[in-house]
Simulated assay, not measured.
Amino acid sequence: MSLLDAARDVRENAYAPYSKFKVGAAVRGASGTIYRGVNVENVAYPEGTCAEAGAIAAMVAAGETELVEVAVIADSPAPVPPCGGCRQKLAEFGRGSVPVTLATTAGARLDTTIGDLLPGRFDASHMDNV
């Protein structure tokens, strides 16, 4: 199964009763294992969880801390990029060169990288004097 197929399949499990905007995400850990996540809304906005954050949490819960590929899919007119917080989360666990596929359920696709999504990222090297 491709990473995009994994994101597409899990998207249906999103909990989006308020926005009706379901998002699916999948990340591939360095081991090759695929971890999936969906957006989970809460009536107390903005207390929900993004799909990318859910996939990363599943990866970390399984004991992995490096991702090597990302896919995100939503039913939208154009591919939906991760929010700012999720861009930073992706940068925490993946190198700038990690490929990111953004897609729509209708088939539109944008291929990018974590580095392109978050140029000038804040990372552990900024903490060297701490």
Rank of each mutant, 00 (worst) to 15 (best):
M1I: 00
G96L: 07
N13A: 15
R36Y: 00
M1P: 11
R11Q: 14
L117T: 03
P119H: 01
A26W: 11
M1L: 06
V80T: 14
A78M: 13
T49Q: 15
T33F: 06
E92Q: 14
T112G: 07
A108K: 15
A51C: 09
L102A: 00
S31G: 08
K20G: 04
V130S: 03
V130A: 07
L3K: 06
A78E: 14
A57K: 15
E12V: 11
A124T: 12
C86M: 02
A74M: 01
V72Q: 00
V130G: 06
T112C: 09
A51D: 02
L67R: 08
E52A: 15
G48N: 06
M1G: 13
V38S: 04
R121V: 13
F21C: 03
I34G: 05
T65C: 05
V38W: 04
P99G: 06
G115D: 03
A53M: 09
T65Y: 09
S19R: 09
N129P: 00
K22D: 03
V80H: 07
E52V: 15
D111N: 15
G48M: 07
L90I: 06
A58Y: 02
A51Y: 10
V70R: 10
D123L: 13
D123C: 12
E52Y: 02
A30E: 14
G63L: 06
P82Q: 01
E52H: 00
K89H: 07
E66R: 15
L3A: 06
L3Q: 03
M127F: 14
T112N: 08
P46E: 04
T112H: 08
G63S: 08
N39P: 03
G32S: 11
R11M: 15
K20A: 10
L117Y: 04
G107L: 01
A57I: 05
P82F: 00
A26E: 07
N39V: 07
P79N: 01
N42I: 03
P79M: 05
M127S: 10
V40M: 12
Y18L: 14
R109V: 14
A26H: 08
V43L: 12
G120K: 06
A108Y: 04
R109F: 00
M127Y: 10
A108N: 10
K22R: 15
T49V: 15
G24C: 07
C83S: 10
D123S: 14
N13L: 15
V43H: 12
D123V: 11
E47A: 09
I56T: 01
T113P: 09
R8A: 12
I114S: 03
A103F: 01
V10P: 01
S19F: 00
Q88P: 00
G24W: 12
R95V: 02
E66A: 13
L4W: 05
A7I: 08
D9R: 15
V72F: 04
V80F: 03
N13H: 14
R87M: 13
L118T: 02
V98M: 13
S2V: 02
A16L: 00
D75T: 10
S19V: 02
F93D: 04
V27I: 11
T104A: 02
S97V: 08
F122R: 09
D5C: 03
A6S: 14
R87A: 09
D5P: 00
V98W: 09
Y35N: 00
D116C: 03
R11W: 05
A62V: 01
A57E: 14
